[in-house]
Amino acid sequence: ETMPFFNQESLQQRLQALIDGARESWAYAIFWQSSVVDFASQTVLGWGDGYYKGEEDKNKRRGSSSSAANFVAEQEHRKKVLRELNSLISGVQASAGNGTDDAVDEEVTDTEWFFLISMTQSFVNGNGLPGLAMYSSSPIWVTGTEKLAASQCERARQAQGFGLQTIVCIPSANGVVELGSTELIFQSSDLMNKVKYLFNFNIDMG
């Protein structure tokens, strides 16, 4: 069934339905939207929308590779960026008024940071895991830190560096659905079918 009308709101709901209803524990879902850059006749996958759920136990991986000093410095950097983004967003939004910094002072986890920097990324003609999935019209499912670390795709290696153990890219109409988890999750047709059902639409972002 093709769903002809589609907007940002329903895209968010579909991403949420995909991982909130899953048996497996996914940390996030991202929809990479394809568009054609006219002057170069290239297909580019850019940020469409994302839903961040988080991992079950965020303390599990704490301090694995970096020193305590590095951890503190990195957290300071992340919190500073978050603080700036918060003020930019609340400056744009009319009724954002009573800003407390509680949320910013809380540790910014590796998966939160990975999700956040994903918003700045895009993939051209078959590059990166999402681009490769789109180009080959077939899903890419990478499970295990060794496989992620050994991948030719920088995004997979980056994901591994931020503690993800599974990353999946499933092509759909108009883009690619990506899911990531800090758990080991093996390929299932159930997830593919869900993506096929939820993301078979004609996009209209307004």
Binding site: Q8, W47, G50, L85, F115, L116
Partner: peptide, 26 residues
Amino acid sequence: LSAVPQARKASLARFLERRKERVVSA
């Protein structure tokens, strides 16, 4: 921020808002 596409801006606002909710409910 005005140069940031609307989709990313909306996603970012939603992410920050949900983060606040997670911290408050923790």
